[in-house]
């Protein structure tokens, strides 16, 4: 026991923490597109199976050149904005009333639970009969699709508002309306905004489906036409536009979250 062994305590706390690697995402994307292009040029991927990225780019350029992209985008964005906004406003209103009033909860919550899981695409033919083959049925499909997830997110958010805050409001004699507007709504917002993300994604899915019936313009109509002509380059160009719409919407909601939920961090 003359010499005691001295050694550092081994470190074992590593791993499991998320690191920020900002460049990896774009790099992977570029690498996949590059591999894809090389595959097409060397003939490993037959042109009928998958067009080269350069051809997709050419199809996009043609769309811009002829100005058709603005007709398609305009028609699609209009349906998306109108349908999503109406569905969201109605959804938040119904979700709030389910959260606030026992009668609304007892009456509406089961119906919402029953209709929420029904794919709204299945109802599309019915909407065509009800609202006509024009804009009505397309907007209604998107409206219905966004309404239900918004209802569920909103009343879930209201249910999760800290009860002690509501009791605080009551103890200071705040009016019912003040408590709803200043305590319950802001308290439910952290649950409502992620609901918007989901409803926006659903809206884009339904947009394409709705545009596949009786639409002259719209990204969905463009993709449908490209598909029936086996014009895979145009088909993928349409998909790229949809993906871009999704990214922009996601970015906008992210901005809204940062602005409205600044108090969280």
């Amino acid at each position: 026991m003359a010499e005691k062994q001295v050694q550092p305590v081994p470190f074992r706390g590593g791993g499991f923490t998320a690191r920020k690697l900002g460049l990896v995402g774009p790099l992977v994307f570029v690498a996949i597109v590059a591999l894809w292009e090389i595959g097409c040029r060397t003939g490993v991927i037959p042109p009928l199976v998958l067009p080269a990225p350069s051809e997709v780019y050419a199809a996009l350029a043609r769309l811009v050149e002829t100005g058709l992209i603005w007709d398609h985008l305009g028609a699609s964005l209009q349906r998306l904005v109108v349908g999503w906004s109406l569905g969201t406003v109605l959804g938040v209103a119904v979700g709030l009333s389910i959260g606030l009033f026992s009668l609304a909860r007892a009456g509406l919550a089961p119906i919402v639970a029953a209709i929420f899981p029904v794919p709204k695409i299945a109802l599309l033919p019915l909407f065509v009969i009800w609202f006509g083959i024009g804009e009505g049925s397309k907007v209604a499909t998107i409206l219905f699709g966004t309404f239900f997830p918004t209802v569920v997110a909103t009343y879930g958010g209201v249910d999760n508002v800290d009860r002690t805050l509501i009791r605080m409001g009551q103890s200071f004699g705040l009016s019912w309306f003040s408590i709803v507007r200043k305590i319950i709504l802001p308290g439910a917002l952290p649950a409502i905004l992620p609901g918007f993300r989901i409803s926006a994604a659903i809206a884009i899915v339904l947009l394409v489906a709705a545009e596949m019936i009786g639409a002259e313009y719209g990204i969905g109509a463009y993709i449908l036409l490209a598909g029936s002509l086996m014009a895979t380059d145009e088909l993928i160009a349409g998909v790229a536009i949809l993906s871009a719409i999704g990214l922009v919407v996601n970015w906008l909601i992210g901005r809204a979250e940062r602005a409205l939920l600044a108090w969280r961090r």
Partner: peptide
Amino acid sequence: PLTFIFQDFALLPWRSVEGNIRLVLED
């Protein structure tokens, strides 16, 4: 007249110090 002070403070996290005080005066 009867005003509570709560164990867990019951401050609105989305309002500043000033905003939390204004809350009870606004009505």
